[in-house]
Design a protein around this nucleic acid. Structure first.
Lengths: 230, 230
DNA sequence: GGCTCAAGTTTTGTATACAATAGTGAGGCT
DNA sequence: AGCCTCACTATTGTATACAAAACTTGAGCC
């Protein structure tokens, strides 16, 4: 999607303009409308987004703290590069957090929690049947978030989500094929089964397995993205 | 330290004003000059800090993303409250990351890495002898950072530091007594010994033990701070 | 041809003016 | 008295003007 298609910020009632601008810009980066390394020229963006420099600047600052934007003092902001090493490291840390959460989840997840995960899983199956990648993706993440939340540690949940945001655009743009899709579903089924059995060892093993495969996919699609950029 | 003693921002060459302002404000919050819950009135602060609202606002936004400031739309910013539960959760997550790093450190730390940790440890002993709390505190953190860095995962290091910043002001203001100080040193010695032996199980156990005690201290001093605020 | 340097342009950083929202208090009403 | 209203003030949100830094371009020179 080329730059000239960028739509103005639509301001929702109650929100401040910088919040809307932040959300809008974040979406543009995650969906890939703004490609990594691209310069975020303030004049240009203010015109395209229909906001003044003030809220735009506050938005870029916020996105910088989220790792989606890189600030170069006196030289503006660019869309953060996607570094293969960094993505792998991020997934690794997410894996550590997830393993810990999985362990706690086995002990302290309520029946309602597990039922919710099961429900999300079935909805995910529906998404696959409809070939609705977007919804599948959202549901997939929701399951992982739910497991994380079972740990009952708000800071853990928040950290996990922050890391997730940093790799989301890679995963969002990773065009998974049918086989991987089915495989991922199968892995989720294993995780779910282990959770229902409250089997700590198995949950951790399945989560690790799932993560390893995920990293493989991401690495591959990342290489493809890099190649396409040249 | 009352509000009226707040000094103007001293701008270093090369830095932008917002960077200096951010650093300055962060220090004020961490050292406790700005107490939790305190309103950050923009007019007042611009006068005291000698900067205009623009860099000040960008600074508060950045500190908000670091968790040191809470933004209330249309109602300004306040110094983030210190929530006991949140601090405990933060330390817990740091513990998870540290345990993982410790595991990797046993395998992949170089001799130079371990020597550096040892050196820091001895400097810490010197700090205790001199009763230099400030330097001790810095050295203590440096050791933990060094262990984290041994994992060779930049994202892990960054996440750990971010979390550390959020609890730093509590720990900074926690006035530890002599016994706890000695105990902490002893715990560090255990960790160091386990690392030198590259004994994964022992390293993890000692780190967990150290963390548990740390949480106890923080909880106590936090309760004292809360009580003092009333 | 390629390099250097300086004037001009563009772009970002900072200050300030203007707009909109939230807080405040006096006066009137029940 | 207590509460509501409404105007006024204070404060934040946004736009824009001004300053400073970085980039561009082209003339002059080797």
């Amino acid at each position: 999607m080329p730059l000239h298609t960028i739509a103005p910020v639509e301001s929702e009632a109650g929100n401040t303009l910088q919040e809307d601008t932040t959300r809008h810009l974040r979406d543009l980066i995650i969906t890939g409308a703004l490609v990594p390394g691209m310069r975020l020229n303030e004049r240009e963006l203010t015109e395209k987004l229909g906001v003044s420099r003030t809220p735009l600047r506050e938005a870029t600052r916020r996105l910088a703290s989220e790792g989606l934007v890189e600030l170069l003092p006196h030289r503006g902001a660019i869309v953060a590069h996607i570094d293969q090493t960094r993505v792998r490291e991020t997934l690794q840390v997410m894996g550590v957090l997830e393993a810990h959460a999985g362990e706690l989840a086995c002990v302290q997840a309520t029946e309602a929690d597990l039922n919710e995960i099961r429900a999300l899983h079935y909805e995910m199956l529906a998404d696959r049947a409809r070939e609705d990648h977007q919804s599948y993706f959202a549901r997939n993440q929701a399951i992982h978030f739910k497991i994380i939340d079972c740990a009952g540690n708000a800071v853990l949940s928040q950290s996990y989500r922050a890391l997730n945001d940093q790799v989301r655009r890679v995963r969002y743009q990773a065009n998974v094929n049918r086989e991987r899709w089915d495989q991922a579903i199968a892995e989720h089924e294993e995780i779910l089964a282990a959770l229902l059995a409250r089997d700590v060892t198995r949950v951790k093993a399945q989560l690790a397995h799932h993560l390893a495969n995920k990293m493989g996919v991401v690495a591959k699609s990342l290489a493809a993205l890099q190649a396409a950029a040249e």
